[in-house]
Amino acid sequence: MRAPENIDAFRLEDTYWEFLDGAKDLFTAERWQGVLMDCSKNELLALAHVYRTGETTMSRIAEYVGVPLNTATGIANRLEKRGLVERWRSEADKRVVSVRITEQGEQQMAKVIGNVGALVGALFDDLSDEEQRVLLRVLARVPELLAKGAKDERAHGSDSRGGMKRIAIE
């Protein structure tokens, strides 16, 4: 995690990452399209994970994104082709593939975070201290509420596609 410029930015960034961690499995792929250089949801999640950790393994990416290792490999291939990450095999154990963010990937993620921060900052400028506290409490609950809504939909068999299941290929 990057060093905060001030404590409010630090808390906001922590809240942002906690929100992403809690909600990453709840948004459909369509909602993620075009967020960052036309990355898929899984590509964006993998890139965000590598950005946050600085360096990680393919196994950890697969675990974070919630996909099999072979799918994570495809995700990393696409990110590497875009120049956003780089990979190498461990000298100690050739089975372990490490991944780190490139300067270009870091710049892209910093740009996205900056844009989101500017939007949230503008929103917060127009709120009182009490409204800011309430909003942060509500935002902290959003992943829980989204998960409950998704669970309720599955329980009731709600499907807006006429019963057909659509599988996104990423």
Rank of each mutant, 00 (worst) to 15 (best):
G157V: 10
A48Y: 04
E170L: 12
I75C: 04
V112R: 06
E144C: 03
A150S: 12
S59D: 06
E153I: 10
V50W: 05
R89Q: 14
S160G: 14
S40H: 00
S40L: 04
M58Q: 13
S158C: 11
D159N: 15
A92L: 14
G163A: 13
V85R: 07
K24T: 05
E55Y: 03
G22C: 05
A72V: 03
D8S: 10
K41R: 12
W17A: 01
A168H: 11
Q108E: 11
G149W: 10
P4G: 12
L119W: 05
D152P: 02
E18I: 08
V116L: 13
V85A: 12
D93P: 12
S128N: 11
D25R: 14
R89V: 12
S90Q: 06
W32V: 13
R31P: 00
D38M: 10
K111Y: 11
G66H: 06
D8C: 06
V50I: 15
K41N: 03
S158F: 08
P143V: 09
S128D: 10
K94G: 13
R133H: 09
R2E: 10
F124P: 03
V112E: 05
D126I: 04
I7L: 02
Y51E: 06
K81E: 06
V142G: 06
I61H: 02
G22V: 07
L69P: 02
G114M: 13
T73C: 12
D125I: 11
T102R: 00
F19G: 00
V35K: 11
S128H: 14
A72C: 01
V67Y: 00
Y51C: 04
E144M: 05
T57L: 09
A110S: 14
E86P: 04
M58A: 12
H156W: 08
V142Y: 03
W32K: 09
E106I: 00
A72S: 01
A72W: 00
M58V: 12
K111C: 07
L136P: 00
E144P: 02
I167A: 10
D159Y: 03
L47T: 10
L12W: 05
T71S: 00
S160M: 15
R133C: 08
I75Q: 01
L127C: 06
A118P: 07
V50C: 09
A140S: 13
D93T: 12
E103C: 02
S40K: 02
K148R: 14
M1Y: 05
R31A: 09
R82M: 07
F124C: 08
D14T: 10
F19P: 00
W32Q: 07
M164T: 13
G163K: 12
I75D: 00
Y64E: 11
V96K: 10
T28S: 07
P143I: 09
N42D: 00
V50R: 04
V138E: 00
L69E: 14
P4W: 13
E80I: 05
L135P: 08
L145N: 07
T28M: 05
R52P: 11
Y16V: 11
A62F: 06
N70T: 10
A92S: 13
R161K: 15
E13G: 03
E43A: 03
M109W: 09
